[in-house]
Design a protein around this nucleic acid. Sequence first.
DNA 1: TTATCGATTCTCT
DNA 2: GAGAATCGATAAA
Length: 213
Amino acid sequence: MTRDLFAADALTVAPLLLGSRLTVTSDEGAVTVRISEVEAYHGVGVPGRYDPGSHSRDRRTERNASMFGPPGHAYVYFSYGMHFALNMVCSPEGVASGVLIRSGEVVEGERLAQLRRSAKRGHPAPVPARSLARGPGNLAAALGITREAHNGRDLFEAPFAFAPPETPPADIAAGPRVGVAGEAGGPAFPWRFWIPGDPTVSAFRPGRGAPRG
DNA sequence: TTATCGATTCTCT
DNA sequence: GAGAATCGATAAA
């Protein structure tokens, strides 16, 4: 059962998701991405180190509620007034942990992904293929993810479809998380994982007050 | 190539 | 009311 993959905590699961495929289907069609970059976030109830960078670090709120839900489901949040971001919920129900899907390569539905990205930007100039799902906001846009339609939904049922990697990546790189403030965004938390050399991996941006490393 | 900044709105304090 | 798990444009170097 591939669903069992998500029973472990996010830090364990995150690197195992690299190279996996996620499909989202809608009336408009289906878009599939091969995941190239992820980040782990640990919240309430996860054994081990306190993660000050997580939405669910202290308590359950209305926004982060689905991070406490059953593993193998989606946690979708709205960011900076204009972007959605997709997480895969890990750990047993009641324990909050999730893997943020940062980037991927569009392997199916490139035309639809391109249309969605153009619509969001407000002009029709195409974006380079490697940038279609580069960065969490862009990936969610390419897949047509919204909080209303997808938050809390099962990743193994429509409109989602999830498949683990057929052959895991030969190499995996790890480093600080992107855009996370303070120590949680520094080398003390190398909880970002990516496929080295993959052109779809997003650019690193340090968070406010994040230490250099 | 690196750095800074505006857009836009939701969530939590 | 402050700040945010971002993006893309623009400026500086």
